[in-house]
Computed example of a mutant assay.
Amino acid sequence: MGCHIPESIHLLIEKDCLEFPLIDVPFNPFMNSLYNRETLFKGYQPGIPESYADTPDQVIYRHYLKHGKEAADIKEI
């Protein structure tokens, strides 16, 4: 998921496999677990409110606000 597949392998698997493309977002959309507080608040320093601006939590939220709640390019099968 989210990796480059060599063309030779792609030709072998394209008929039977579903591919997850690389997505240009400022976070990992293919996490194998839920976010936790340590991950979301990485870089936050208590007592320094402006340090929250660069935490993954805020980066993801700003991306969400900029690009909207719903993606127009979602392909449903």
Rank of each mutant, 00 (worst) to 15 (best):
V59N: 03
D73G: 04
M1W: 13
T39Q: 12
L40D: 00
V25T: 08
T39S: 11
Y44L: 15
E76S: 11
G2E: 10
I60Y: 03
I23E: 15
P46F: 01
I5N: 00
H63M: 05
P46H: 03
N32M: 01
G68D: 03
E38Q: 13
K75L: 00
A71K: 09
F30Q: 08
E7Y: 03
R62L: 11
M1Y: 15
F41W: 06
Q58D: 11
F41M: 14
R62M: 10
Y35N: 10
E14L: 00
A72S: 13
G68H: 03
G68Y: 05
R37V: 12
K69N: 09
S51M: 07
D57F: 12
T39L: 12
A71D: 12
S51P: 15
D16V: 01
E7D: 14
G43A: 11
K75D: 00
Y35H: 08
S8Q: 00
I60R: 02
V59G: 06
H10M: 05
I77F: 05
L65R: 10
T39D: 14
Y61W: 10
P29E: 06
P21K: 12
D73T: 09
E7W: 01
L34S: 12
L11V: 02
I23H: 10
E38D: 13
I9F: 00
P56R: 09
H67D: 12
